[in-house]
Simulated assay, not measured.
Amino acid sequence: MQEVYDSIAYLYDGTLEGLFTAVFCAFERHEVPTDVCREADYQPRLSQLAVTIETSLQKADRVRAGILRACGRRGYRRVRRAALSDDPSAGTDVYRFVAFAMAENAKRPCHGCPRRGTCRSAFCSPRQSSCPKVVGRLIDDVTNPAVKPVHKLSVAVNRECEHMRQFLRFQELEGGLFYARCNPKANVVPLIMDHFAERFNIQPFIIYDENHAIAGISEGGDWQLVNIRDWPDHELQLPPATATEAVMADAWCRFYRALSVDCRYNPELRRQLMPKRLWKNITEVKGEA
Rank of each mutant, 00 (worst) to 15 (best):
V4Y: 14
I8P: 01
Y10P: 00
Y12R: 00
G14C: 05
G14Q: 03
G18R: 00
L19I: 04
L19S: 03
V23Q: 00
R29S: 07
P33V: 03
Q43Y: 07
P44W: 09
P44G: 13
S47D: 08
Q48I: 15
V51W: 04
T52C: 05
I53F: 00
R64T: 13
R69Y: 04
R69F: 14
R69W: 08
R73Y: 06
G75T: 02
G75F: 01
R77V: 08
L84N: 03
S85C: 07
D86Q: 11
V94P: 00
V98T: 03
E104D: 10
E104N: 10
E104P: 05
E104V: 02
R108S: 15
H111G: 03
F123P: 00
P126H: 03
S130P: 04
P132W: 01
I139E: 09
D141A: 15
V142S: 15
P145I: 08
A146N: 13
H163A: 04
M164G: 03
Q166H: 08
F167S: 01
L168P: 01
R169D: 05
E172V: 15
G176F: 08
L177G: 11
F178T: 15
N183L: 14
K185G: 06
K185I: 13
P190Y: 13
D194Q: 14
D194N: 09
A197W: 02
A197S: 05
E198K: 07
R199T: 02
R199N: 14
R199C: 03
I207V: 04
D209V: 14
D209Y: 09
D209F: 07
E210T: 12
N211I: 12
N211T: 11
N211E: 09
H212A: 09
S218I: 14
S218D: 05
G220N: 05
W223V: 07
W231A: 15
L238K: 14
T242Q: 08
A246N: 06
A246W: 10
R254K: 15
F255A: 07
Y256V: 11
R257T: 08
N266S: 13
P267W: 07
R271E: 06
R271D: 10
Q272M: 11
W279Q: 02
T283K: 12
E288V: 15
A289M: 13
